[in-house]
Structures are given as C-alpha cells and as structure tokens.
Write a protein that binds this DNA or RNA. Structure first.
Lengths: 234, 234
DNA sequence: CGACCATTTGATATGGATCAAGCGATGTGG
DNA sequence: CCACATCGCTTGATCCATATCAAATGGTCG
C-alpha cells in the first residue's frame, strides 16, 4: 500500500465499455449497508487506472476496500508465474478484508475504477462496540468463503462447464437483460477458470456454434439459451 | 441433521492409526480457545462411526462442530457424482460454521470420531454480548477462507505439486516427526486434490522412487526430503 | 484359508495445453 | 484519409499429462 495510493490521477481514457453503466452491481449487497449506514467509516474515494495495483500480496492489510465503479481482480501468483484469479469484484462489492495482518492476495483494477478506503483498525474498533457492524464483517467474510468454495468446485469441472458457470455468474451479477458485459480480458477469464486463453476462446466459439450464446463483441455476450448453460453447470 | 444425530453409538473398531495420538491437532488453535473459554456453550460430545454423515449439504445449519478425536471431511458433489472434498478436519478443528441458514457442504467422519456440538443460535447470541466471541467467530471464518483460497491455488498445479503440497500440509498439521499418519483413503485424497486415485497412487510411488518419501504403510508416510517437496510446492 | 476392499501397476485414450499463424479492431503517423 | 503497427482474440496442428479401462497385488477380517 501507501506509495501507489497517493498519486493516482484518473486519466480516464475510458473506452465506453469500461465504466459499468449499471453503476451498482448487485454482487454483495451486504457491503453496501455496512458503509452506507456508517458514513463516518468511509475514507476518500480513490481512483485507480486500468491495471493499477490496489494492494499487493503480503503487504499490511491496513484498509478494507469498497468498489464504487469499475472492476477489480484479486489474484495470487506461483513462483513460476502462473496466476490464479480468486475473484472479480464489481461496483458495490467489498474486498481486501483480511483477518491476518497481511493481504493474502494482490488486487488490481481491471478498468479505470473508483474505490472507497476504510481503515481496518477503525472498522475493527467500531465492530467491538456495534454488534451490527461485527455481524456485517462476519457476513462479508462468510460470503467470501462461500464464493471461494464455489470457485473450488468450479475447478474440478470440464472446460465447457467452467465457461458456462462463469457466464451465468457474470450474468447474474451484471444482468443487463440484453447481454453480459465483461470488463475483463480473455486472459483474466482463463486465469479465473484455470484454463488457457485458447481454451476459453474455443469454448466460447463452440457455445456460439451451438447457438447457446451470441458473441456481440468480444466482451459483450448475449445468452441465447440459459437452460443449456445451466445444464452444463451441473 | 436431527435423525442421524441421535442414535450414534461408538462401535470403535478403531484400527490403531484411527485415533489421533496427539489428541490435539494444531490445525486451528483458535477454535480451541473459543469453546474452552466458554464451556457453557458446549453441547454433548457425540460419537460418529466411520463414514457416518455429520450433516448434509442444504440442511439447516443449527450447530457448529468441534472435532474432539478422529477426522472429518467436508465435501460437495456435482449432479453426476463427482465429489470435491473441501477440507479435512483434525482434532481441535472447528467446522460447519455457516452464515447462511443452511450448510453449503456435507460432513462425514473419516474414521470413528467424537464431535462437540454447539447450538449456532447460542453462539450468535453470545457473540452479540461478547466482542471476544464475535472476534473468534470472525477469526474461524477468516481462517476457513484462507484455507479455501489456498486450496484453489492448489487446483491449478500439476499432480506432483498437488500431492507434495498435500503431504506438507498434513505433515504440518499432524506432525509426528517420524511419519505422517493419513486417516483418509486414496479416494479421499484424490477428491481433495482434484485427481484420480490412480494418479495419486502413481505420484506417490514416483516420489518414493525419487527417495523423497517412504511408504511405511499405505496410510503412513515418512517425508525423507522435505526440501524436494517444498520445491515442488512452488 | 478365502473373501473383500484398498491400493498399485499397466495399457490406452483424450481433453486441454502448447506452439504457431491468422485476423480484426483500435490507434498512430505520414 | 489511408498504410501500418499493435494488441487482443480466434483458429489450426500437434503434444502431453492425466483420465480411463483393466488387471494384479496386498492387507484385513471373518
């Protein structure tokens, strides 16, 4: 933290698709209440450029983050460079909440993003007095746990099943009724699903050929047949 | 819950290796304090036979569990029968703590086991009054989250790396200085690592041939060369 | 001893990775 | 405004790690 926290200026060469038009992904409604009900907890809203690091693995976890706009990925890397994306966060989501002193993952902005920072100590202090806040912290953590468990289950499935599950997940979180807007690259998707970009790409074209989806643009996908996707999802 | 909860009698045809001799695996020391400091929370200690279900996915999560002796696996199954083991629990570990109303996984005794039950409501009520207890709940959940994240990272590795990581994990939790005692079958290991039993078996023989480990018995493994294992671990 | 179950070992198949082009947008400089 | 470089994505050809299928071995218990 700290140094990259200071001099971020939004250049915002935003390419249309970047800014989430919905403004509020429904990902974890929990986090919204937490900070909305206690505005005194909120620090400033900070802008991060596309691909900017928000925090790094192993750095002291002094803040908890709430995404206002844009999109964020958290990930870990193995010594040989393999990268595992643990989660994607959309506006309204809270991330970076750790129990230990240090962050267990790194976080980066996927597109130009705005993030509200909350001092962890402040939050923990308040949670000692307010059992509501304590409950919310537990809720956020438990939800993250659930997400991680689901992710684990994903990783034992076939490529088709993983991609189908990913599309359904994104559709649910960022439902536009028309199409799913994906802020992330194929590489990000691949690293989230434990596949290669080639396999992700091939699987998508396969689903397109099956008339299960429609590729409106590479990051704009219409789900033509959710039934089929759900069946693939097991 | 409920019905399988009532008439479990320990037949205890314990096969020597079954009962953890240490009596207190060091897995999550946190949970120990939680219940030891608040004995009034503890329900009765219940015995479960080998392979008995402790709770099932989707059932109401009315209890939180603390393992006294034996070993437990939690898992989820896909519609076609594939099983993903999410975690192994050893004596001293707390499991089954959920935020939602229902259990997200099933839990079974791997060997004859004893488990202390705590009513979830009681625990949540106490946590409203005692911020210490609230903090412990958060700690246990956060630790589970960390464990799940580590598990995810495991699943993108090669078979050798997964097996090596598994052995190191078990050695750390159940260190005997002489050998690692594995309460679980090869099938359990395979389902934990996202591999087949054949691959697990072959990988173990390979490590044996490399003189990295020694197979004292199929469930009793000596780590000859931890360095090599750690390197494999990435 | 004989049956059963867990584990190992062997032979073959295959899904996804890897290596290698091609292609289509977006942006740049002439 | 158009050639051209760049980047992200797709498509194709081949390879390999692990799955699958099948059988042998070994330990445990009645």
């Amino acid at each position: 933290m700290s140094q990259q926290m200071s001099h971020q200026i939004t250049i915002s060469s935003t390419r249309g698709e970047d800014r989430s038009k919905s403004g509020r992904g429904l990902a974890n409604g929990i986090g919204i209440a937490l900070l909305d009900d206690h505005p005194e907890l909120c620090g400033p809203s900070m802008p991060f450029d596309r691909n900017a690091e928000i925090y790094g693995e192993g750095e002291p976890a002094d803040y908890v983050y709430k995404l206002v706009s844009g999109a964020v990925r958290t990930y870990r890397v193995l010594s040989d460079g393999r990268r595992q994306i643990g989660a994607f966060y959309l506006p309204g989501d809270v991330f970076g909440l750790e129990l230990g002193a240090d962050h267990s993952s790194s976080a980066e902005a996927i597109v130009d993003s705005k993030v509200v920072l909350v001092r962890r100590n402040t939050l923990l202090n308040v949670s000692q007095r307010s059992s509501d806040v304590a409950r919310e912290l537990l809720a956020i953590t438990a939800q993250e746990l659930r997400r991680a468990q689901d992710h684990t289950l994903l990783l034992i499935k076939s490529a088709q099943e993983r991609v189908a599950a990913f599309l359904l997940e994104m559709a649910q979180r960022r439902s536009n009724s028309l199409a799913v807007e994906l802020p992330m690259s194929r590489q990000d998707i691949a690293d989230y699903l434990g596949l290669t970009i080639e396999t992700v790409s091939r699987t998508l074209t396969q689903l397109k050929d099956d008339a299960t989806i429609q590729l409106l643009a590479s990051r704009r996908i219409a789900l033509r047949n959710r039934e089929a996707l759900s069946e693939l999802n097991g």
